[in-house]
């Protein structure tokens, strides 16, 4: 027994100190605001694991030190725009504008993807994110509750220049924290959300260049707080960074 304990303790010590926590989510059929077939079909979410907290400045700093090609002074401009990590004091220094436990922001989709890959994970899909964000503290799908919507919308009343709170907010029914606040999050298929469902109609190919284009039929129209996120994600390019766009990672079950 004692030997077993020693072994277990040894294993625990051998694990990297900052190994991220992932929560298991069961998945299933999910009524997304974005119908799977562009009309009305529900999404199918396979069981998956999701990081319980968004990636922090400290975690991203450790990643940058291990993968110097992602330093802000070395990254290729096609993979991250000029604002990438610009609130950090230096290429490998956080400073007062980027506290260790604050969620990392001003990261491009490419950088977020590379980070997740470095911990054996990937970015969640939009459906996975929307599914996890549908929960409140006690229910897995609280979307019909006006209080849930209020909470999602309260993001907009937070001044964009106010410092971000540290991660570690109250967990939702899955044990996932900070998913709707305080930052928005990249998803793997961010550039796939508003591809017009009649994009095979070539009468006006220019239509494809614009988000929405009026062609995709969106469900659950009362969930405009969620729809605004889709519009925002769709307007971004993979190298873009913004003041309030962070990310978390996902893994298969």
């Amino acid at each position: 027994m004692r030997a077993w304990l020693t072994l277990a303790l040894g294993l625990m010590l051998a694990l990297p100190a900052a190994a991220a926590d992932y929560a298991a989510l069961p998945g299933g059929r999910f009524a997304s605001v974005l119908p799977a077939d562009g009309k009305a079909a529900p999404a199918q979410v396979a069981p998956f694991r999701l990081r319980t907290e968004p990636v922090t400045n400290a975690e991203f700093l450790a990643f940058v030190k291990a993968h110097p090609e992602w330093r802000r002074d070395r990254v290729a401009s096609i993979l991250a725009d000029r604002r990438y990590l610009s609130h950090w004091a230096g290429a490998e220094t956080l400073g007062s504008e980027a506290l260790p436990r604050q969620p990392v922001t001003r990261v491009s989709w490419f950088a977020a993807q590379a980070f997740c890959e470095s911990e054996g994970a990937r970015l969640p899909s939009w459906y996975e994110w929307e599914y996890a964000a549908a929960a409140d503290a006690t229910r897995r799908d609280a979307r019909s509750d006006p209080a849930w919507r209020e909470n999602l919308l309260s993001w907009y009343s937070r001044p964009s220049n106010a410092p971000l709170p540290d991660v570690g907010g109250a967990p939702n029914a899955y044990g996932v924290r900070d998913i709707t606040q305080p930052v928005w999050e990249w998803v793997d298929d961010f550039n796939a959300l508003l591809v017009a469902s009649d994009s095979r109609d070539q009468n006006d190919p220019d239509v494809l260049k614009f988000c929405g284009a009026g062609a995709v039929s969106l469900q659950e129209k009362e969930n405009y707080a969620v729809l605004m996120r889709i519009a925002m994600l769709s307007a971004l390019k993979a190298a873009d960074t913004t003041n309030n766009m962070g990310f978390r990672c996902a893994k298969p079950q």
Binding site: A36, D37, G38, A41, Q44, I78, L79, W109, F110, D189, N191, A192, L193, L194, V195, A196, S197, S199, R200, Q202, P205, L208, K209, K237, A238, A239
Partner: peptide, 20 residues
Amino acid sequence: SGVLGLQYRQLPDGEFNHSS
């Protein structure tokens, strides 16, 4: 598709919507 600025989305029937 990200670096080329192309968009695509797989549909449940296996087809893709994509920019051309």
